[in-house]
């Protein structure tokens, strides 16, 4: 359990929009200057941004990259509706009200395990930051096996290349539903094929997943059957983002196995797959 911060110690911060880059169809990478978020964020955590003064609620985004030296952090998102639309239109220099970093992080794993990062679409965002942590040794020892990253998309045109990672240190494999890039099928099918082919040894692997819920549910089943420890990062509509509204829930089990609703914003967004009832 996370200890709550001392009274009045957390506060909203002003993140200044530095740049907006289109990296795919309707997909943007935005960089913000805010040194505290840049320094404190750990892989899996998110920021809750107020996209503009006319919006009632904030929008949640996983932190995609950080540069603690420059004091910046990046997000990667698809322009969908009012909130993301407003954020997309903001010019560089705009001050954005930001809460963060919020939520928990992916758990670093034992040194002899191969981390397998399984991303569906933009679920890649928090996993990219985790890959970077793994590669830089902050989440694991340097001599550990090379991390594997599986990236799934519908088709090639939607595939976003993870920003700033080197394929020398990271084993990146692609999957598309139509086979236009890499393996034909879902990322979960790809992982399954890799297990069958002996590329992955279940007892020596740790899976981390983020993406659409049906994909995560399939991933949870595969990992449970293969007895591979698995952590998943979930998404919910989040009115508050800091645990007070009880809106962002997912059905799951508590430590004694009883059914309960977890708050994704505060008990997660990263959960042990076994504690979620899909």
């Amino acid at each position: 359990m996370k200890q709550p911060a001392p009274a009045g110690k957390l506060r909203a911060r002003t993140a200044t929009l530095v740049s907006t880059r289109q990296v795919g169809p309707n997909i943007l990478q935005q960089r913000f200057a805010e040194p505290v978020i840049a320094r404190r964020t750990q892989a899996g955590q998110f920021v809750h941004l107020l996209p503009g003064p006319d919006l009632l609620f904030r929008r949640a985004f996983s932190v995609y990259a950080t540069d603690p030296k420059q004091g910046t952090f990046d997000i990667l998102y698809q322009v969908l509706g009012k909130g993301t639309g407003a954020l997309a239109r903001q010019p560089a220099g705009t001050a954005i009200d930001a809460l963060g970093p919020l939520g928990n992080r992916f758990t670093p794993l034992p040194a002899d395990c191969t981390p397998i990062l399984v991303a569906g679409g933009l679920g890649m965002a928090p996993l990219r930051l985790f890959a970077e942590e793994l590669l830089s040794g902050t989440s694991r020892r340097q001599e550990s096996p090379r991390p594997i990253m599986l990236l799934g998309n519908r088709r090639k045109s939607q595939a976003v290349v993870p920003f700033g990672l080197s394929s020398k240190t990271l084993d990146v494999r692609w999957a598309t539903d139509d086979g236009s890039r890499g393996f034909r099928g879902t990322v979960v099918d790809l992982l399954s094929a890799m297990i069958v082919a002996g590329d992955v040894t279940p007892g020596k692997a740790h899976v981390y997943g983020c993406g659409p819920e049906p994909m995560l549910a399939a991933l949870a089943v595969l990992c449970a059957n293969q007895r591979i420890p698995c952590e998943l990062s979930l998404e919910r509509s989040m009115p508050c983002g800091f645990g007070v509204c009880m809106g962002c829930v997912v059905r799951g089990r508590d430590t004694s196995g009883y059914e309960t609703y977890h708050r994704v914003c505060r008990d997660g967004p990263v959960f042990n797959a076994a504690s979620i009832a899909f």
Binding site: P4, P6, A7, G8, L10, F242, G243, V244, R266
Partner: peptide, 13 residues
């Protein structure tokens, strides 16, 4: 129902 049971809000206010 909008400030929990105190714990969460206390860190922000």
């Amino acid at each position: 129902g909008t400030a929990g049971v105190g714990e969460e809000i206390e860190s922000w206010c």
